[in-house]
Design a protein around this nucleic acid. Structure first.
Lengths: 242, 242
DNA sequence: TAATCGCCTGTCAAATTTTACAGGTACCTC
DNA sequence: GAGGTACCTGTAAAATTTGACAGGCGATTA
């Protein structure tokens, strides 16, 4: 068995024992470095709240989200559009794209991110994710990987995604705080989550039916939900309701 | 989106709501038939105990393992050796191989398995798996698939493997609560929790609107919910949805 | 004082869900 | 062959929600 397969095997074993974001990060970091990359990043875009597990410098990732770079980032855009694994960076990136995107690449370079390989992942229900191995080298050295290393990287990305989805998402539901809803909005929504209709709630809360509707309209708008069921789901996921 | 991509997308959605061997089987069976194949099989050889999820006739699969055909089966042998997706069967198979293998193919034919496409999957050292789409037709009709259909089938195989590994193996290890909903019920409910209407879901899941309603009716009844919002809330609270 | 926010209320049409029926296939187990 | 399960489909009326308006009250704060 080739060294690369050995590394891959260790990764598969390890990922099955990870139970927290930290641990997933450590496992993937180890894999990336063993394959000759300095960094890795797993980014998932699910509606409003992106999820990132990576070994990128914190100074870079916080800046990234603060400036909404996930909209701009050519790698993310490409991952959205394509299905196959692709590599990026090197000379090509400093020339391609619009001015903003070139500046983005310049900036990333100062944080030690110059080129990499990205696995686009379709998450189902409209979600998408991308698993990236990155390096500060000017160009990728494919000889790092054996002939079918690409296949392995693809598998790594999928495994990472699947295990994060299977393990982490279940836990994170209970660890949220911020209450973005007003008390009335929460109150009405809580009743909706218990199967009451607007007319019921009007009686229970002692306000006009339309007012109940008003609060629910606001709650839906605030949580970016198209329907009450979605609104309830979002509120529960964010810990705004129990 | 092309019909094939549509089918693929539905598969990705569905597989994430599968939580048992049965449900994985159903999801893959549906995919296979929509792509014009009669059967599918996912075989994993991990040391002593092979794992099979398939829609092959039970009479065939039990015979297969009883006689240790996994040692003989040319498709499995090839899947072990190769990494790229390959197709098999048709005239070639009745002529190639030794006498035993030709008899094996004959026997398979009597169970309605004549040709197919197989995705070899490497779990690393020692571990291997194969995802197969099979048909009773003498030869494969590639026109069934669009240009990059092969790529999609590869992804299907990988996804199937990863989700079985992530969900099923983890589940059996950590004794999770039995889901009170069927896979279809969960799938429709998951879309509701994402703001889709019944009409939307009918398109997404490729079934009649009334059938979506039917599944949602059942889900509501099972969870004792008076409305969809309550149903979503209950499912989330019980960890049936994420 | 003006602006903002949470809160309250209204109308009306259009879209969507809910209820209550009735039936079908396929597969597996007993 | 009977019984069970998952799955699929239909009709049609009743109930409920959503969308798009428009307006008022009281408290806090810049």
């Amino acid at each position: 068995m080739s060294p690369v397969e050995c590394i891959f095997q260790e990764f598969i074993d390890a990922i099955q024992t990870a139970t927290s974001e930290d641990e997933f990060e450590r496992v993937a970091t180890r894999l990336a470095q063993r394959l000759g990359f300095q960094r890795f990043a797993y980014l998932r875009l699910t509606g409003e709240t992106p999820m990132l597990i990576s070994s990128y410098p914190k100074s870079w990732t916080s800046r990234y989200f603060q400036l909404g770079y996930q909209q701009l980032d050519p790698v993310v855009r490409r991952a959205r559009a394509e299905r196959a694994l692709f590599s990026w960076g090197g000379e090509a990136s400093t020339l391609a794209g619009n001015r903003e995107q070139r500046r983005f690449f310049d900036e990333a370079t100062t944080f030690g991110i110059r080129s990499g390989i990205t696995v686009p992942i379709r998450g189902g229900f409209g979600r998408m994710a991308a698993f990236t191995l990155a390096t500060g080298d000017r160009d990728l050295h494919p000889e790092r990987l054996v002939a079918d290393g690409e296949d392995l990287i693809r598998l790594v990305g999928l495994h990472f995604h699947c295990y994060v989805a299977a393990r982490l998402d279940v836990l994170s539901a209970s660890t949220r705080v911020a209450s973005e809803l007003t008390q009335r909005e929460r109150q009405c929504l809580a009743w909706i989550a218990r199967g009451k209709t607007i007319a019921d709630i009007a009686v229970l809360v002692q306000i006009a039916p339309r007012t109940v509707g008003f609060h629910l309209d606001n709650a839906r708008a605030k949580l970016g939900a198209a329907s009450l069921p979605q609104c309830v789901a979002e509120a529960l996921r964010r810990g705004l309701l129990s």
